[in-house]
Amino acid sequence: MVELTVRRASLWQDAVRLLLLLDAAAEPLGHDPDAPVGAVGVVHTQVRLQKLDFWVRNPDYLANELLNEYDADPESPGLIDAAERILSSQEPDLRRFPMLRHRFGAFEHLDNALSVLVEKGLARKRHRLGDKRVIQHNYYLLDQGRVTAASLVTEAPALGWYVERTRLVVNLVNGVGGTRIKERQYLQRDYAGTPIGSYIPAITEQVRARLTTLRQAGATEVGHTEVAR
Rank of each mutant, 00 (worst) to 15 (best):
L62M: 13
L129G: 05
F97I: 15
Q50M: 02
P195K: 02
Q206C: 00
N112M: 08
T45W: 04
L141V: 01
T5E: 14
G175S: 15
S198D: 12
G197A: 06
R146S: 08
K132N: 07
P157C: 05
A192F: 10
E155A: 13
I135C: 06
V169D: 10
Y191R: 03
A156P: 04
R128K: 08
V40Q: 06
E108W: 00
I86E: 11
L66G: 15
R167K: 15
I196P: 00
G175Q: 12
R103G: 03
L11R: 04
A202C: 09
G130C: 04
L129Y: 14
V163G: 06
R208P: 04
G175W: 14
L110R: 01
I203W: 00
A15Y: 00
K120M: 10
R184T: 07
A35D: 01
T212N: 08
P92R: 02
A35G: 03
D23G: 02
R85P: 05
L94I: 15
R85D: 15
A106P: 05
G30M: 14
E205N: 04
T204N: 04
V170A: 08
D14Q: 13
Q13K: 14
T204A: 10
N174R: 14
Y139M: 02
Y186V: 00
A39K: 06
R103I: 10
A156R: 11
R124Y: 04
V116F: 04
Y61K: 07
P77G: 12
L52W: 10
N112D: 13
L29I: 07
Q216W: 10
L20P: 06
Q136S: 05
E3I: 07
T166K: 05
L29K: 05
T154F: 10
I203R: 00
G41F: 03
V169Q: 09
Q136V: 09
H224W: 02
E75H: 14
A9H: 08
D60F: 00
A123V: 00
L141N: 00
D111L: 03
A209R: 08
Q46L: 08
T204Q: 03
L29H: 06
L152P: 03
I135D: 06
V170F: 05
W12G: 11
E119W: 05
Q185S: 01
R189L: 10
Y139Q: 00
S76T: 15
V116G: 08
L141K: 01
D93P: 05
E3T: 12
